[in-house]
Simulated assay, not measured.
Amino acid sequence: MHLVPRLARRVPAVAAALCALTMLAGCGSDALAKKPPFPRSTVQAAKGMTDPSTDPGSGSTGSGKPVDPAFAVDKLRLVDPCKLLDADTLKELGKPDEAVPGGFTRCSNFMKDKAGKDLSITIEVGQTLTSEVEKADKKLAGLNSYEQVLEGSACFVTVITQEDPGIGITVQVGYKDGDGCEPGRKIAESVVKLAKGKAVARTAAKGSLITLDPCELPSDAAVADAAKESPRVYPYGLHNCSWVGSDAEVTLDFRGGYVPKDDKFDPKQVDVDLGGVKAYQVESSTSYPSCTLRWVQLKGQDNDGEVVEVKSAGPKKSEFDRCAKAQAFAKALLPKIPKA
């Protein structure tokens, strides 16, 4: 049975731009992630996305057509990112270590180069892209690609698999003692070739969230109730979606990875009964108040599992019961989620 591995780090869609290309930044719930053995690195967030009411974008989901049928979103959801880290290709760069999976879409290898120096490689499948699509000025394995070098020896090599909205596969290389982009290109070329084949596909377990489209799953009525009038849709990655209205928003996130002992995601959580499904609720009273519900969909061995997260939020001036909205949205969603 397929259950996603530990080290999962998913990112709520409304805050997606804050975590764009932060594959090593560790954005997301600490309870769903173990501390990674690599340094943090970030890219400047898109303007206005910390408060969706200031975002000038339309929230359009675009045409949704991949550059190649092999990279259709429904196919990318089934790609096992660790199978994209080809052992032979890694051996050309040095001495690989064991693959470290990270949720549904990420995998890392913290290896050594041929001189015994640290060389960390992380793949993210289905990365949400913004300006990278327009800035893509290179070609790798027949796809447009974009490279970004961060101060501190990190290089991101992104291949564009869909232009509207922008989706890609990103290879991040941490290499303090060399040019990280050079091995990044080699890995990216291998990744593209492997992603087109069937050998990297995985079979989802019964009741798994991995094949579900979070933007399509909720009913229009549930979205309208949670995000009020004419919300903009913000897909993020392959398993996260937000609906942002003028004074309220809701985010749906499917996460794979570490499930803490006794389901203790947050020390402040309280138990909530969603009509036979036990969920865990946490309120936040910041300048942008929110209420988050989580429940465990599947559990595997060694605390691996899959989790659904629903978050209702809105500016402080907007007075509504965020927890009531989150619970109503979750209850409307439950019948559409497959039973384990």
Rank of each mutant, 00 (worst) to 15 (best):
H239E: 03
V14R: 14
I169H: 00
S58R: 08
P335L: 11
A326G: 01
S284I: 07
L274E: 07
A188T: 10
A248C: 03
E134L: 13
S41K: 06
V67F: 08
T89A: 02
A330G: 08
V149R: 08
G57E: 07
P165W: 09
D179R: 14
V296Q: 02
D213V: 05
P231S: 01
A222K: 00
S131Y: 15
G257I: 00
T122M: 15
Q172K: 15
D86Q: 03
Q162P: 12
A20Q: 12
A188I: 06
G28T: 04
D177F: 14
V223K: 05
K112S: 12
L217Y: 01
F104I: 01
I337P: 02
T42K: 04
E132R: 05
M111G: 07
G94Y: 01
L252N: 06
R202Q: 15
R40P: 05
N240K: 06
A227V: 04
G48A: 09
D30H: 05
A201D: 12
G64D: 10
K114H: 15
D321C: 08
K325V: 14
K331N: 04
F156M: 14
V250G: 07
L32G: 00
L21A: 10
V282I: 08
L119K: 03
L293Q: 00
V133Y: 07
Q281V: 02
G48W: 08
A17M: 15
G237V: 05
K193L: 13
